[in-house]
Structures are given as structure tokens and as C-alpha cells.
């Protein structure tokens, strides 16, 4: 593996993203709009029904804003380019280079995500003018939060990559993509905290599902629903799913690559 090349891919993706100025402004603007709408919605819900699921309103609003920022980070989908490459057959050019395509895509996604993170800064600052935001409970919590987002990013990349790899067989995965996105947004805690689901078995399953690693773990750490004593277990769960999805993604890719090489795409 030639690390230099992959660093170069990431840098290139970062600067490429920077050239789309309109996208930067519209993304930040859309976050602010949704912050405003969701904050209004949750405030009124709380006013009508009182505190829900053991989450006070100020924590809930913080949760909503951070979830919208995570949308920016996870929304990158660098694996999308693989789908285009497979469909147009240009994947062959990548196969003629001394590089690993999944690692190339990972580096590219990393670069794009780096730029997306930069957009989170103004979005966060401006959101703070709209609603009250809680800081993380401690420095340790903040460190755990960052680690949880990093692992969530990796799991998210594997999910995207698995779907993109399916293009080797189906050529069109829009239907699956929509379905997975819908399930993920519901089960990851990005729309509604998982603590709102019925307590007991259902909630336990959801809290431990792979989707929970994306939003629930980092956000729960920030708002204090996951306490320091549970950090290791929560991050361990994320790592477990990262390993499972990672192994599957690597395996699926190797089967897909073999298929191209045997059948000619």
C-alpha cells in the first residue's frame, strides 16, 4: 500500500469540494432552516406533553441540531462514484492502476468529509443563535463523542460501499438505496431519539443495532444519556458493527471484482 497516493486522493477530494461554493452556502442554509423548523416542532410537542423519554427540552434541542450536523458528515456518500464507474465501465481504468479501489474511495470520502466538517462550524455557530445548545458534559465526553462520530463515519462508509458494490450485479440500486436510507433514518436515531421507542425488547434491539452506531451513540454521549461508565461498551458496540460491515464490504467487493474480471463486467 502506498500511503502517499491515498493522502493525495483525500487532499484532492477536499479541494474539489471547495470549488462548489453554492453547495456550501445552500447546505448551511438548509441546516439552519431545518434547525428552526424542528426546534419549533419539538418545543411545541414538549409544551403540550411535558418531558419525554427522560430527555429534557434543552437536551432534545441540542440533539436535533447535532443530528442535522451529522447529516452533513454522513451525507457525503463518496461511494456513489463507484456506482457511476461500474455502470459506465470506467472502473476498468481504475483496475489498470496500481491502487486498491475501495481504499481510493475511502480516501476520497475522507477528503470530502473533511470539507463537510468545515461546513459544520458555521452551521453550529449560527444554530446557536436560533436555539439554546448544551455543551458536552465533560472533556472526556467530548473526546468520546469525536471517537464515536469517527467510528460512525467508518460504518456509514461501509454501508454506502456495500450498496455501491451491489451495482456489479444489479446495475441499478436506487430502490434499495431509498429503502436503506429510510430504515437508517428511522432506526439510527437521526429523526427521533431511540429512547422514544417502546421500552423493553424493542428499544434494546434498536439501541444495539448497527444503525444506532451512526447517530444514537455519539449524540447520546453528548447529551449525557450514555454515561462515562458506559463509554467503553458503547464504542465497543460501534467497533463490533464496524468490523462486521467492514468484513462484509471487503468480501462483497472481492466477489464483485472477480465477477468483472471473469465475465467482463
Amino acid at each position: 500500500m502506498r500511503l502517499e497516493a491515498y493522502v493525495e486522493f483525500a487532499k484532492r477530494a477536499f479541494s474539489r469540494e471547495g470549488t462548489y461554493r453554492f453547495q456550501v452556502f445552500s447546505r448551511v442554509g438548509s441546516v439552519l432552516l431545518r434547525v428552526f423548523l424542528l426546534a419549533t416542532l419539538w418545543t411545541n410537542l414538549y409544551r403540550a406533553n411535558g418531558e419525554q423519554a427522560g430527555i429534557p427540552l434543552h437536551s432534545m434541542l441540542t440533539y436535533v441540531v447535532l443530528a442535522l450536523l451529522l447529516d452533513i458528515v454522513y451525507g457525503v456518500n463518496g461511494a456513489y462514484v463507484v456506482r457511476e464507474k461500474i455502470r459506465e465501465g470506467t472502473i476498468a481504468i481504475d483496475f489498470m492502476r496500481p491502487i486498491s479501489v475501495p481504499l481510493y474511495v475511502f480516501s476520497d470520502t475522507l477528503g470530502q468529509t473533511g470539507f463537510a466538517l468545515l461546513q459544520c462550524v458555521p452551521a453550529l455557530v449560527l444554530s446557536a443563535f436560533l436555539v439554546h445548545l448544551d455543551g458536552p458534559p465533560s472533556v472526556l465526553a467530548f473526546v468520546a463523542f469525536v471517537a464515536a462520530v469517527a467510528i460512525g463515519f467508518v460504518v456509514n462508509y461501509f454501508i454506502d460501499m456495500i450498496m455501491a458494490t451491489m451495482t456489479f450485479w444489479t446495475m441499478e440500486i436506487f430502490g434499495i438505496q431509498i429503502m436503506v436510507q429510510f430504515i437508517a433514518s428511522l432506526l439510527s436515531g437521526s429523526l427521533v431519539p431511540l429512547y422514544f421507542f417502546p421500552q423493553g425488547a424493542i428499544q434494546q434491539i434498536l439501541l444495539n443495532s448497527p444503525f444506532a452506531t451512526l447517530y444514537n451513540v455519539p449524540l447520546s454521549i453528548w447529551i449525557g444519556k450514555i454515561e462515562p461508565a458506559q463509554y467503553a461498551a458503547a464504542l465497543g458496540l460501534q467497533l463490533f458493527w464496524a468490523t462486521v460491515f467492514g468484513s462484509f464490504a471487503v468480501w462483497l467487493w472481492s466477489v464483485g471484482e472477480r465477477k468483472v474480471v471473469i465475465q467482463g463486467g
Partner: peptide
Amino acid sequence: VVFGQRTQLYWDLPLIESFRLLRAIYG
């Protein structure tokens, strides 16, 4: 490999940037 019908250069980068990237890829 050189294809007349499709480029292997990076479309939105200056030529020299593609060369630099290839330098890294091939070490």
C-alpha cells in the same frame, strides 16, 4: 494505457495536478 475515447486525467484538475497524483500513485 492511452485511450483516445476516454481520458484518464482528472477532469476538473489542471493537467499538472493529474501528473502529481500519478507520481504519488506510481511512487
